[in-house]
Amino acid sequence: MTQDSQAIAAEYRGYAEAFQDQSVVEAYQCRPPYPDSTFDILTQLLPPHCTAILDVGCGRGELARHLAQRVERVDAVDVSPAMIEQGKKLPSGNHPHLRWVQGRIEEVQLQPPYALVTAGASLHWMDWKIVMPRFAELLLEGAYLAEVGTAMIPSPWTLLGEMLSRYRTDRYITQPHDVREQHLFQVVGKRATETILFVQSVDDVVESYHSRVGFSRERMGSVQAAAFDQEAKETLLKTYPSGMVPFQLRGHVVWGFPKKKE
């Protein structure tokens, strides 16, 4: 990776600090849920003799709280104390099989071995050259790292068109090159869930943007955030005059082996 690429990657990871903002934590409830069959896919990836899972970048525990009901132990790691505190208050947030760990996954103390590492829409915020070899060390031989995400139609990133670029506080950049292109992750399999109908009010759709890095209320400022909310609601109501927005939602899981330390 070139020096410029390293700088971009560092800038990109720096944006993740927004997940410690209280407004982002509070707005997270408006993000779409994982379809139930997502958890069936994940548990099917576990070997029969061990079911301890490490959930990285866990946020409020959208994966961890459900998985804790199915396995012997889930260690849920996130750098944001506010996200963890919120997660503890949600259903199964105090499950006896769930252990919350606050800190950077690159350096926190853990209790391996793990039969699966899960990353729900979080892997892109991490330092891949550090975490991939670490995951390889933490996992049982032959166990997987699973990237978990959702896809929606219409996509939140196209729903409001060009207005998003006028309001967002971050630069629209991605980490230089894909983790697979850097040969740090060997894909073994992919599965998608069934598509389900997910319906939200216009107000909740607009609020969901404030759970995303570029639209933290603290970083936008109250005036800019209020202007965004008003314009976004007016835009959505032109297309959805009932005040309800229907989405086609599905989950997806990609699993494989993280690269071992050389």
Rank of each mutant, 00 (worst) to 15 (best):
T2L: 11
Q6V: 12
I8S: 01
R13K: 13
R13D: 08
G14S: 10
G14F: 06
Y15V: 01
Y15A: 01
Y15K: 05
E17R: 15
A18E: 09
Q20G: 15
D21Q: 06
D21A: 11
D21N: 15
D21Y: 07
S23H: 08
A27M: 05
Y28N: 10
Y28K: 00
Q29T: 11
Q29C: 03
Q29M: 06
Q29E: 15
C30I: 00
C30Y: 14
P33F: 06
P33W: 06
P35M: 04
P35K: 05
S37C: 09
S37F: 02
T38S: 14
D40F: 10
D40I: 03
D40C: 02
I41F: 13
Q44R: 14
L46V: 08
L46S: 04
I53L: 02
G57Y: 02
C58E: 01
G59P: 04
G59F: 09
R60A: 11
G61E: 09
E62N: 11
A64R: 13
A64F: 08
H66K: 15
L67Y: 04
Q69C: 15
R73G: 02
V74P: 13
V74N: 10
V74C: 11
V79L: 12
I84D: 12
E85D: 15
Q86K: 14
K89Q: 15
S92F: 15
L98V: 09
R104M: 12
I105G: 12
I105C: 13
E107W: 01
L110C: 05
Q111V: 11
L116N: 06
G120W: 01
S122Y: 07
L123K: 00
H124Y: 13
M126E: 12
I130M: 10
P133H: 09
P133W: 10
R134G: 07
A136V: 01
L139R: 03
A143Y: 02
L145N: 06
E147Q: 14
E147I: 14
E147P: 00
G149Q: 05
M152D: 01
P154R: 08
P156M: 10
P156F: 12
L164N: 07
S165Q: 14
S165I: 00
T169A: 11
Q175K: 01
Q175A: 14
Q175I: 10
H183L: 14
V187I: 15
V188M: 12
G189C: 12
K190T: 15
K190L: 08
A192M: 03
T193R: 03
F198Q: 05
Q200L: 10
V202S: 04
D204Q: 14
D204R: 15
D204A: 13
V205A: 02
Y209I: 04
H210N: 11
G214R: 02
R217N: 03
M220T: 05
G221I: 05
S222H: 11
V223P: 00
A226S: 15
A226Y: 01
D229N: 13
Q230P: 00
K238H: 07
P241W: 04
G243C: 10
G243L: 06
Q248W: 09
R250L: 09
R250I: 05
G251T: 04
H252N: 07
H252P: 00
V253Q: 08
G256N: 09
P258C: 08
K261C: 06
